[in-house]
């Protein structure tokens, strides 16, 4: 295995043992936590949006009906709910990314670099990982 800083290959990309990192428990946890947010989040916003569009196309009478007061339509209220959804889901993603995904990504990178150095210097098997100072990476 080559050291990570051991010169760049022809395509100019830095080299790591990508396959080992990809299989590491830290990376697996990162992608599964991300997937657990992004997949349901995407399904939800696409469904809510496409539901709105389908109603606008096929149920104009329903969309034009009065909502609570004269002048306000169901369609406009549903359109506003799309704005609200975009702000809220965007904000939730940012919060989750700052608090959960970023620390997990850092941990995956740190342990990968730890492994590389250990392998290059001592050819020892995987060293014990440094305990992480931040408790925020733990599932909430």
């Amino acid at each position: 295995m080559s050291a990570p800083e051991g010169g760049l290959p022809a395509d100019g990309r830095p080299q790591y043992d990508w396959e080992t990192i990809e299989r590491s428990p830290e990376f697996r946890e990162l992608v599964s936590r991300k997937r657990a947010f992004i997949v349901p989040g995407t399904i939800f916003f696409l469904a809510w949006y496409l539901g709105f569009i389908v109603l606008a196309g096929y149920a104009p009478d329903f969309m034009g009906s009065e909502f609570l007061v004269d002048g306000l339509t169901v369609g406009y209220v549903l359109a506003l709910s799309q704005f609200l959804m975009t702000f809220v889901l965007g904000w939730m993603y940012l919060r989750k990314a700052d608090r959960v995904f970023d620390p997990l990504a850092e941990r995956a990178v740190a342990s990968a670099e730890g492994r590389e150095h250990a392998a290059a210097e001592t050819a020892a098997p995987e060293p014990a990982r440094q305990p992480q100072p931040s408790g925020r990476v733990l599932p909430q």
Partner: peptide, 24 residues
């Protein structure tokens, strides 16, 4: 009237696709 607002909604919600799937 209302139909014009449909563009606004689509143009905005589209950024969730960008944020969740591609930006980073």
């Amino acid at each position: 009237g209302f139909d014009g607002f449909l563009y606004s909604v689509g143009f905005l919600v589209a950024f969730l696709t960008v944020l969740f799937l591609l930006a980073e």
